[in-house]
Structure formats: C-alpha cells, structure tokens
Simulated scan of single mutants.
Amino acid sequence: MPLFWRIFLLNAVVLIGATALLLGPVTVSTPVLLTEAAVLTGGLAAMLIANGLLLRIGLAPLQRLTRAMTTTDLLRPGTRPAVGGHGEVAELITTFNTMLDRLETERAASAGRALSAQEAERHRIAQELHDEIGQTLTAVLLELKRVADHVPPAIREELHQVQETTRASLDEIRRIARRLRPGVLEELGLTSALKALANEFTGSALTVRHHIGADLPLLSRDTELVLYRVAQESLTNAARHAGARRVELTVRRTPAGVELRVSDDGRGIDGAPEGAGISGMRERALLVGADLSLDAARDGGTEVRLTVLTSHRSH
C-alpha cells in the first residue's frame, strides 16, 4: 500500500473512532468536567503517538536514503542503502541504487578514456622532449666543446660554465621525460621501476626507503601502471607539499592481491581538501577495482594505501 494511503487510513481510523466515542458514551459537558478533559487529552495524545509511530516507521527508509544521497562520492564507492519499507519507498531506494551503479560504471569508463588519452599525451611529449629538445641540446654541447677548444683560456672557462648549464638542462629534460613516460616500467617491470622511482626522489632533503616483495603476483599492464602512478604522485606530494624528510615505500603480496603503502613523516593532511593529484589517484584506483585510502601515519605524516585485488585485474 502506498505511504499516502497508509497515513490517510490510519488518520481516518483514529478520527472515526474519536467521533464515535464523542457521539456515544463519551460526552462533553459545559463547562468541561475534569474527567472529560482527561479523556480528551488522552485521546489527543493517542492520536499524536499513533501518527508519530507510523511516520517514524514509514519514513525511516527515506531518512537512510537521504543520508546516502548526501554522503555518496563516485570516487569512493561504498555500500548501498538497504532496500526497506514497502511500495513506493522500496521502489525509490532500488531506483537510487540502480542509478548509482550506472553512474559509477559510466564514470569509470569515462575516466578510463581520459586517463588513456593522458598517458598517450605524456608519451608523445616525452618522445618530443627526448628526440627534439634532447638532441638539440646534445648538439649544442658538442658545438660548445668544439668552440672551447679554439678560444683563449679566459673565454674557455666561460664556455665551460655554459656547457655545465646546458648539461644540467639536458639532464633535467631527461628526468622530466622519464617521469612522463616510465620506460623502465615497460622494459624491466614494476619492481625495477619502483626502485628507480625511489632512488630518483632520494636527495639531500628527502630519503626514500623501499621495501618491495620478491613474491609479487603477475599483474596486468594497467595494474602495474596504476601502482606506479600512485606511488609517483604520493612521493611527489611528500616532497613538494608535506615537507617530509623520510618516506617508506612498501609493496607486498596479500592473500587477496597486492598492497602499496607510501608513508611519510610530513605535516599530514589535517582535513585539507583533496586536490587534483589525489582525485587522479582515486580515478586510477577505480580503473583496476582497487581501494585507495589516505590516513594519518604513525609518525604524524600521511599514509597512502592502495589495495589491488588480483581477481579484479584489468586486461
């Protein structure tokens, strides 16, 4: 029975009963006697309680649905509100759950296309940096060396400084190209790529220690790329924004799949809004059915945890 008719019929029953009592044995004197006032007050209280109970029972599923609507985040898939109530209420909750399933599927597909295009663009830019700018700077270095061999010593020293600046620029371009397109991931696999990534971020201001299990299961190319990109973004955040001095990068096999954990000793998240980098990590995690969480680390910093289920591997 629809919610409207349930409420209407209960109110009708209560009012009809009250009317019958007033027309029958219960009468009201003028002035109202104390006992009559007590009876009327009790009847009114009974009507209010009955209406309150019905509304509480009938609208409870709608309140749960409202809470689910206000807390739903497509980047953080969670449990669906339980289908409760009867008739229109149950149908509404079922429709809402179906809508969430469709939206999450469409968002995952859209994010997959966007990230694939992003990786292709990164590959193109890295290739151009390496082939065009890198070769140009290499030619400049060779020309500077040739000129430096035929100039007076005073000018030669200045040319050597220009050579060092050009060589540093060439190294920086190569480093950027490696971050845009992790060739070591394609050539040597995930373990070597993560070790190279940790070594790349290790410097005077930051120390990255890596612990990578030797028994990692066979993963798809998409899953390895997601693990690498999440580790890369986590290290970038620790180095640039968290003010961290030490980072622990751990990859281990679990009974269900693989877990990546990046923990730093920086200033922590402190309820700060998530930026584009973290949103990008969540979108990548959804592509391979992984679970991403950001929590406070034991040292007061931030711990990023990515759990990949091998049963949900992408192909």
Rank of each mutant, 00 (worst) to 15 (best):
S220W: 04
I173Q: 09
A276D: 10
G134L: 01
V26L: 12
H241Q: 08
R245W: 00
H210Q: 14
G268K: 14
R240M: 09
H315N: 12
R261W: 03
L225T: 12
Q232H: 13
E200P: 01
E187D: 13
A285D: 02
R6H: 05
G43T: 09
A148N: 10
A109L: 06
L103D: 10
S234K: 04
L55C: 11
L9A: 06
T223F: 00
T254V: 05
F96C: 06
R252M: 06
E121H: 13
P2H: 10
L48V: 10
T136H: 14
A126G: 14
Q127T: 14
L55K: 11
T236G: 07
A68C: 07
G243M: 11
S263F: 01
E121P: 02
L180N: 07
T79R: 15
A154M: 02
A231L: 00
E158V: 06
G266E: 02
P152R: 11
I155N: 00
V140H: 08
R80K: 12
G266C: 00
H315I: 06
L188T: 10
P25Y: 03
R282Q: 07
E121T: 13
A111M: 11
L249C: 00
A68N: 09
F201L: 09
S29L: 09
R107F: 07
P81Y: 04
V251G: 04
T138W: 00
N97L: 08
L9Q: 02
H211C: 03
I278M: 08
V184L: 08
R209G: 07
L75F: 04
G52F: 03
H315Q: 12
T236S: 11
I133Y: 06
W5S: 06
G243S: 08
L15K: 09
E119Q: 13
S116P: 02
K195Q: 12
A214T: 14
I212D: 03
A296G: 08
A82E: 14
T19K: 12
E274I: 11
L100R: 15
A90N: 01
E91S: 12
H86C: 09
R221C: 00
I49F: 05
D215R: 12
R284V: 06
Q63A: 13
I278T: 05
L142P: 03
V162S: 04
D270E: 13
F96K: 11
V258E: 07
T94A: 14
